[in-house]
Structures are given as structure tokens and as C-alpha cells.
Amino acid sequence: MQALSSSAVLQLFGFLIGLSSSLDPRDPNACSLWESYTTSVKESYSHPYDHVTEEPCSDPRTSYRCSRHRITYKTAYRQAVKTEHRRRYHCCPGYYESGGRCVPHCSKECVHGRCVAPNRCQCEKGWRGDDCSSSCDDRHWGPDCQKECKCENGALCDPVRGVCQCPPGFIGRLCEDSCPAGTFGKGCQQRCKCGNGGSCNKATGECTCQKGFTGTFCAKTCKGSCQPRCPCQNEGRCKGNGVCACLAGWTGAICTEQCPEGRFGKNCSEECVCHNGAKCDPLTGRCQCREGFTGNRWVWRKVWDVFRRHCTKL
């Protein structure tokens, strides 16, 4: 049998330790399951007793006596086995117990940083990379930072692999290409909503209207000199000087960017606590469960074969 990886061993150990310890149920990274167990109990029952008496027989011509049976019941006691159920708390996948709390596990050590979520490091100032081990600046990468980053349009280089991380509005291996017409944003994944011949800012999606039109999406007509318009999209509110106050679930200069994966709420300031591949609603933070999962944080119904019983909502 192939040996388990150190990461799998650590998570399995943390899971089993969590089953036997007292985790705080309010810990956002604690999951629960129901388990059955047996106890020996003393139970009462009605035990029948047969009372036998002798009485004159019904035939008066004989002197024989006949036996009469009368059944009575008395309370008796016996040992029995009773099945009970109890809820057990353990750390959700990607977390392990430490000091009574569920803390995230990073398969790679965060060399110059700390583990803030499963396999996600937060680096100290001056350090970069998935494991915070690179001291390369924005324009260099590789061993000893000897390789020069060739990314264009302000794109940053991954300090280990050298892959370009394109800013909104650009695509391509070196981020050399602007978004195609009608698209904008990170990876050019969003569609431009400007009407009446208006053009879209490739990075933010803000509309530039043709003469005679105004409004967020250039949908209103105007004569002569058009009044200043609010560029905020997705029901964002203009605060003046081109600053937008975005609704929960949205961010960006004019509120065109949904919260990135793992974040939700106003200004995307809240961190999601969904597990087992569940997606987080960027507005409310509610987990959108995959098939085979349930619960407020989508606890797995089948926590390994040994614990396949009654996983329930937290």
C-alpha cells in the first residue's frame, strides 16, 4: 500500500484528535457529525408468575382436589444494551486542531509569512511566492532572482515560475494584448454594457458615451452640454469626485468586480468559511453546496468510511 503523504497524515491525525477533544462549536472552521454508541442500562419489565392452588373439583361426587393456575405479573429488572447518538465536533477539511481551535493547514511551509487559510500564505513585507520564500522584487524571478520579468502593461511576475499575472484589461502570455472589443476586467471575462455606441474602459468597464447620451450605460439622451453622470454600476452609489460606494458583493473603481473567491460582503471584507469545494455567495457569504454535501457550512455526509452516519447541519 502506498504510504500516506505527510499532509494526509497530519489532517487524519487532526481529525481523530478533534473527535476526542472539546472544540468550541462556534469555531467557524469546526464541522460536526452524529455518531452512535451503546450503553448498558437496567430496565424494568413485567415478569409472569404462575400461582398454583388446589381446590375441590367441580364434580361433587368425588373427593379429589384439582389444581388451579393463576398468572400474576410482578416488576422485575434486567440488563439491556441501549443505542444512543451524540454529536462530535472535528476540524473541517483543510484545518487541524491546535490548542482547542481549528487552524488552517498549508502543505508548504509559509517560510516568511503565516498560513491564513488552507494552502494560502500571507507573506511578510518584502517576501513573495506561494510559500513566501522569494525575496525577488516585482521585476525579477527565479533562483537568486537572476531572471528578468518581461511582463508588459504593469503586470507582475510570479517570483518562482515567472508567469505573468495580468492586471484588469490585459491578456496574453506577457499581458501584451488589450481586452477584445466588448469585454473588460480581469482576464477580459466581463461583458461591456455601454449602449448607444458608448465604449468601455478595458480595465474598469466605465462607459464613455457618444455625444448626446449620458447615464451609467449611456442610455439617457441629453441636449447640448450633458450634466455630469454617475459611472457606478451594479447599483453602486456615487459619493462625489468619481468615488463609488459599492453594494455588498461588489468592489472596484466603479463596482464592476465581484468579490474574489473566498471573500464576500461590503468591500469584500468578510472571509468565506465554506468547505468541500462549496462556492460562497459574494453578497451573503452563504455556501452553495455541491451534490453530496449539506449544512450551513456544508459538512460532508461521508467523513471517511468509518464516520458515515448522520452528518448533520451545524
Rank of each mutant, 00 (worst) to 15 (best):
Leu16Glu: 09
Leu247Lys: 15
Thr214Pro: 07
Ala219Lys: 08
Thr294Gly: 10
Cys132Gly: 02
Gly198Met: 10
Lys302Ala: 07
Ser67Glu: 14
Ala219Asp: 13
Glu54Gly: 08
Thr221Asn: 10
Asn196Glu: 00
Tyr77Leu: 10
Asn241Cys: 05
Ala8Asn: 11
Glu261Gln: 14
Cys218Ser: 07
Gly172Ala: 01
Cys132Ser: 01
Ala219Asn: 12
Gly172Lys: 04
Ser134Trp: 03
Phe217Gln: 12
Glu43Thr: 13
Gly169Ile: 12
Trp127Lys: 09
Cys57Met: 07
Gly182Phe: 08
Gly172Gln: 09
Ala76Asn: 04
Tyr96Trp: 09
Ser133Cys: 03
Lys239Gln: 15
Ser6Gln: 10
Cys200Ala: 11
Ala219Gln: 14
Ser20Leu: 15
Ser269Met: 08
Lys82Asn: 08
Tyr45Thr: 07
Tyr64Pro: 02
Asp177Pro: 09
Lys239Ser: 15
Thr221Asp: 08
Phe264Pro: 00
Thr72Ile: 13
Gln146Trp: 11
Arg65Val: 07
Ala30Pro: 00
Val111Ala: 06
Ala30Met: 07
Cys179Gln: 03
Thr75Phe: 00
Gly126Leu: 07
Leu283Arg: 15
Lys82Ser: 08
Ser133Leu: 06
Val116His: 05
Phe184Ser: 02
Thr312Glu: 09
Ser44Leu: 00
Trp127Thr: 04
Glu257Tyr: 07
Val163Ala: 11
Gly224Leu: 11
Cys110Pro: 09
Asn196Ala: 01
